[in-house]
C-alpha cells in the first residue's frame, strides 16, 4: 500500500479560489479530493501537511501563531489517521476471510455431495439451500446393492462453519459403518455414540434416517429429535405428521431409537424437511405447518423436483428473500 502524494499545486489553487470567492464549486472539488484521497490511501497527515504548505504558499507572511496552530492540529489528528489505516487493513483481511470461506463452502459441497436416486415407480425431489455460505443442513442418499436406499436428513444445531465441519465428520462416520448395518435404529444408535464422544457439548444433531425399499414400497425410519416430516394420503387427500420418538444425537450416550415402518401407496407422498422450513417467519409472524402443507398441496400436481423448488420459492419470497435458517425439503412421490 503506497501512500500517494496529494497534488499540492491543485490543492493550493482550489484553496485560493475558495478563500477568495467562497464558491460552491470549489467545495464540490474539495469533496472529490477527499474521496480520491481515501481511494489512494493518502493519509490524514498528508492532507493536513498539504493544507499547511498551500497556506504558506498563498500567505508567505502567515502569522507564526497560525503556523503553530496547524502543527497542533496535525498532532491532534494522528490517532484518526491510524484508525483509518487500521480500518483499511481490516477491510482487506475481511475480504481474504470471505474468499477463504467461499473456498471452504465449495469444498463442503464437494465433500457432502450426494446423488438423488432414480427409482422406478417413484419420483423424488430435493432442495437444500443454506442461509449463509456454509450449510448446516445435510441430506444424503446411500444406494445399497439390494436396491434399497438409505435417506438421511439432518440439521446441526450450532450454525455456520463449526456446524458444517461437524457434518463432514458425520458423513464419514456413516460411511465407515459396515454395509449390512443399515437399520435406521442401529445407525442412529451408533452415530449417537460418535457424536457424543466427538462433538462440543453445545452442539448436537437432529437426524431422520429412513431405509426406503422401492421394490416392496415400504419405508422404515427412526428419528433423533428431528423435525417431523409428513405423509400425504392420496386416498383421502390428507396429511399426517410422521412422528418418531428419539432424543437428538450427542446429548446422552445411552440413547435408543424406535424404528417404525410404513407402506407407501399409489399417489402418496413422503415429505422430509428441516426446521428451516417450519420455522420460516414472515416479519414477526410464524408460518404454521398447516400453511406449509397447503403450499405443498397447491403444487402437488407438478413433478417432485418442480414441487420442492416451487415451495422453496414461495417461502423465500415470503421472507423477503432472506432465509433465517438453512432450508431442506425432500419429497418422495409414488407414481399412480
Amino acid at each position: 500500500m503506497d501512500a500517494l502524494k496529494l497534488d499540492l499545486s491543485h490543492y493550493r489553487e482550489l484553496l485560493k479560489q475558495y478563500i477568495n470567492t467562497q464558491d460552491e464549486s470549489a467545495l464540490y472539488e474539495a469533496e472529490q479530493i477527499s474521496k480520491r484521497s481515501i481511494q489512494h490511501n493518502i493519509s490524514l497527515e498528508e492532507i493536513i501537511n498539504t493544507h499547511i504548505n498551500a497556506l504558506e504558499d498563498i500567505y508567505p507572511e502567515l502569522p507564526e501563531n497560525i503556523q503553530h496552530s496547524m502543527s497542533f492540529l496535525l498532532e491532534v489528528m494522528i490517532s484518526y489517521g491510524l484508525a483509518l489505516q487500521e480500518f483499511q487493513d481490516l477491510r482487506e483481511t475481511q475480504l481474504e476471510i470471505k474468499s477463504e470461506i467461499s473456498v471452504a463452502a465449495r469444498m463442503q459441497n464437494t465433500l457432502l455431495s450426494t446423488v438423488k436416486p432414480d427409482v422406478e415407480g417413484f419420483d423424488i425431489g430435493v432442495v437444500s439451500v443454506p442461509a449463509n455460505q456454509m450449510n448446516g443442513d445435510y441430506h444424503h442418499f446411500i444406494h445399497h446393492e439390494d436396491g434399497t436406499v438409505g435417506i438421511t436428513v439432518a440439521d446441526v444445531i450450532g450454525k455456520g462453519i463449526p456446524a458444517a465441519l461437524c457434518m463432514s465428520m458425520i458423513k464419514y462416520a456413516m460411511e465407515s459403518f459396515p454395509s449390512e448395518h443399515k437399520n435406521p435404529s442401529e445407525i442412529l444408535e451408533s452415530l449417537n455414540r460418535v457424536v457424543e464422544r466427538n462433538v462440543d457439548p453445545s452442539m448436537f444433531i437432529t437426524m431422520f434416517y429412513a431405509l426406503f425399499n422401492p421394490a416392496a414400497s415400504t419405508i422404515s425410519y427412526s428419528s433423533a429429535g428431528h423435525e417431523p416430516g409428513f405423509y400425504y394420503h392420496a386416498a383421502d387427500d390428507t396429511f399426517e405428521e410422521i412422528r418418531a420418538k428419539g432424543v437428538v444425537l450427542g446429548v446422552t450416550d445411552m440413547a435408543q431409537y424406535r424404528q417404525y415402518e410404513r407402506e407407501i401407496h399409489a399417489g402418496d407422498m413422503i415429505i422430509l424437511l428441516t426446521d428451516g422450513v417450519t420455522e420460516c417467519r414472515q416479519g414477526d409472524r410464524f408460518i404454521e405447518s398447516e400453511e406449509v402443507l397447503e403450499v405443498i398441496k397447491s403444487f402437488s400436481h407438478l413433478s417432485a423436483q418442480e414441487l420442492v423448488e416451487n415451495v422453496y420459492k414461495h417461502f423465500e419470497k415470503l421472507q423477503d428473500f432472506h432465509l433465517r435458517d438453512d432450508f431442506t425439503l425432500i419429497i418422495i412421490k409414488k407414481d399412480v
Binding site: 453445545s202 452442539m203 448436537f204 433465517r324 435458517d325
Partner: peptide
C-alpha cells in the same frame, strides 16, 4: 427460541 437456544440448555445440562 430457535435451536441455538436448545444448545445452550444442553450445555447447561452437561454442566
Amino acid at each position: 427460541m430457535d435451536s441455538t437456544g436448545l444448545g445452550v440448555f444442553v450445555s447447561g445440562l452437561k454442566s
